[in-house]
């Protein structure tokens, strides 16, 4: 579905992606991992056609995505309908007067009848538990509700692929759990799912496959998630985990966590004084 070959992208002089070659098939669920500023967001923007590659090639279902092809009104619109994108900052993504209008924006553009639009909006609001917010202004919603509104607005267009940039960012634990479950449901309903996260546990939960970005804007690993999780030295090298990060395997249950820094440990107090010097 998404075929990228040796893709590079830079903002003015700052390289954001370098020599990225990835293929993502229809129906897959892929997680992007990597430290801050490694190019995950740029990669997602590229997938969605917000930007076009500077070098290399990117084809979506055989349609080559370039600056020129994105300027082709009809073809670009068809592409944007098929790939839904939820930005990291939901605040900037919402621009309609109320939640209902927000969700109805896409379907109305697609020229669906007002009955069909209403059906879709109602369904989407129900799926995300936003029924009571239909006539509220998105501006006054909580962070979690805004994220849900952005997801509902994307779903209403019924895209084939869902691309979410750090969907769990700023959510409370309960909403986070709920959203993880919901994303899994969408995946089993046949949607291609591409998410970025720092959260290894989440990656394991929602994606069989993980792509790890390196600090130098290249791909460090593209592996089944469970294999990647075993490669602690690699995860440590790209700053995704600190050295206290570990996993427990008791009775088939695996979980990762880190331990709080303890003052009395001489090794750690050394670390603290180091960071103060910086």
């Amino acid at each position: 579905m998404f075929v990228l070959e040796n893709v590079s992208y830079s903002y003015e002089e700052n390289v954001a992606l370098q020599g990225v070659t990835v293929t993502i098939e229809r129906g897959e669920s892929v997680c992007l991992l990597g430290p801050n500023g490694c190019g995950k967001s740029t990669f997602l923007r590229l997938l969605c056609g917000v930007i076009a590659p500077d070098g290399g090639t990117y084809a979506f279902d055989g349609w080559s995505v370039t600056r020129k092809s994105l300027a082709d009104n009809k073809a670009a619109k068809a592409f944007h309908q098929r790939v839904g994108f939820v930005f990291q900052n939901s605040d900037t993504q919402l621009f309609c007067a109320d939640v209902y209008e927000e969700v109805a924006f896409g379907p109305r553009q697609m020229g669906l009848g007002e009955d069909e639009v209403e059906r879709r909006v109602t369904d989407c609001l129900r799926l995300l538990g936003l029924q009571d917010f239909a006539r509220r202004s998105p501006y006054h919603l909580s962070g979690g509700e805004k994220r849900k509104t952005a997801i509902a607005a994307m779903l209403a267009m019924n895209p084939d692929a869902l691309v979410l940039d750090e969907p769990m960012n700023g959510l409370d634990p309960k909403t986070e759990r709920w959203l993880a479950g919901f994303l899994l449901e969408l995946h089993s309903a046949g949607k291609t799912l591409i998410t970025s996260t720092h959260d290894l546990e989440l990656a394991q939960e929602i994606s069989r496959r993980s792509i790890l970005f390196d600090g130098n804007h290249t791909i460090a690993a593209d592996l089944p998630t469970n294999l990647l999780m075993r490669d602690m030295s690699l995860l440590r090298r790209v700053n995704l985990v600190d050295r206290y990060y570990h996993q427990h395997r008791d009775g088939g249950h695996t979980h990762f966590h880190t331990h709080p820094l303890q003052r009395e440990s001489p090794e750690i107090s050394g670390d603290i004084s180091d960071s103060e010097e910086d």
Binding site: R45, C48, G49, V50, K77, A78, H80, Q81, F85, F87, T92, Q93, F95, F105, G106, R108, Q109, M110, G111, A153, M154, M157
Partner: peptide, 9 residues
Amino acid sequence: YALKLRSVG
């Protein structure tokens, strides 16, 4: 950008 991506028609 969000407006552009959602302007599918």
